[in-house]
Write a protein that binds this DNA or RNA. Structure first.
Lengths: 191, 191
DNA sequence: GTGCTGTCATTGAACTCTCAATGACTATCA
DNA sequence: TGATAGTCATTGAGAGTTCAATGACAGCAC
């Protein structure tokens, strides 16, 4: 497989692009910081945990296998394990052995968890509305949806591109061969 | 000052709004995870640290007071202190006492830091281009800019609203009066 | 000058996330 | 059946962020 290891002239961002990128980043950072702080304040959990509760609440029987839960909440398995452990301490989630696969675990939202989620959701949704949807026209909401889809597609295509795969392969090799510094100081991993 | 402590009927999100919100969140999460991973890979630093280096590199003399640096990099003082401490260990930043204010510290980007930033920037920019700008039309780039500005304005207005201020005040009171559980389990803090 | 209040920056503890390693089990194939 | 590879989920270490507390200094009123 051929991979363009030699980086051609860097395609820097145009002024407009740079402006858009920085505005986008700034807005995201401030927005999510605000949301994060609010959930921490009203429910004592980070937004990632809230997401987990939401996804569980929408699942049939309010329960899901750990791997499925990780998928729908866009979370790594490791992160989910830690998160569910914390939420279990609070009594908001229960874990039981999966009846069909003895490796598996099933996470279930408890009634306390559902009640806590319900309470948090009310002010959370109100906040999201105020922060975003009260600020945008219906037209802009549609634009945001399309832009988000495009970015999502971009992430998909780039993270499955040959260059990215070569980069990951190099990384695994480096892990096996401990003296290799990886591509820490050179081009060739544009993905 | 009058604050509407009784929450009126929750204004839930419409299907389109919820779809847009989830798509937006998902895109952001995956996008920034990708960017984060890339910078960690090529430079060994998180994106927040990269931002700090960028802002320093743009400052006159490549140096800035800590507070100013925190402002422009949208970072808390605490976070900046920790971050600069790490970057100083690498020799990418130096701290010196501020000549005009003996409380102050001035952070300066070293030549090594600038070189590291320069190297990282090449592939970082390329990645941002591939992930976002190659996916969007020029029209959409403009839309993204306007939407970002609107969200930023939303954060500004909400975080300075009477309700939010009342909430902060309540929080401070709760800190003084240790038995008060705050508004952990009730409405009234929509900000 | 003295005292009070606010700002600058740092520190340590607690928490979350990532990464690599691990144990337990399933699936596949000879 | 037995060996091998792959999946499920957890764990511990290391790193970054937040929060509250702190020390040092500036600014202002008296």
């Amino acid at each position: 497989m051929l991979v363009p290891v030699e980086q051609t002239e860097t395609r820097w961002l145009s002024p407009v692009e740079q402006q858009a990128w920085r505005a986008f980043m700034g807005a995201c950072r401030r927005l999510f910081a605000e949301v994060e702080g609010h959930l921490q304040h009203v429910a004592g959990i980070p937004h990632a945990y809230y997401e987990i509760l939401v996804r569980l609440s929408e699942a049939p029987g309010r329960e899901l296998r750990m791997t499925q839960l990780a998928d729908v909440s866009i979370s790594s398995k490791s992160r989910l394990s830690h998160a569910v452990a914390r939420l279990e301490e609070r009594g908001w989630i229960e874990r039981t052995a999966c009846p069909t696969d003895r490796r598996g675990q099933v996470a279930r939202l408890t009634d306390e968890g559902f009640a806590a989620l319900d309470t948090a959701a009310k002010t959370h949704v109100e906040q999201v509305r105020q922060l975003i949807f009260d600020q945008l026209t219906p037209l802009q909401v549609g634009q945001l949806l399309e832009i988000s889809a495009a970015i999502e597609a971009g992430v998909d295509s780039v993270s499955s591109s040959p260059a990215a795969q070569a980069c990951r392969a190099a990384r695994e090799e480096a892990a096996a061969d401990l003296d290799d510094p990886g591509c820490l100081d050179g081009p060739g991993c544009p993905g």
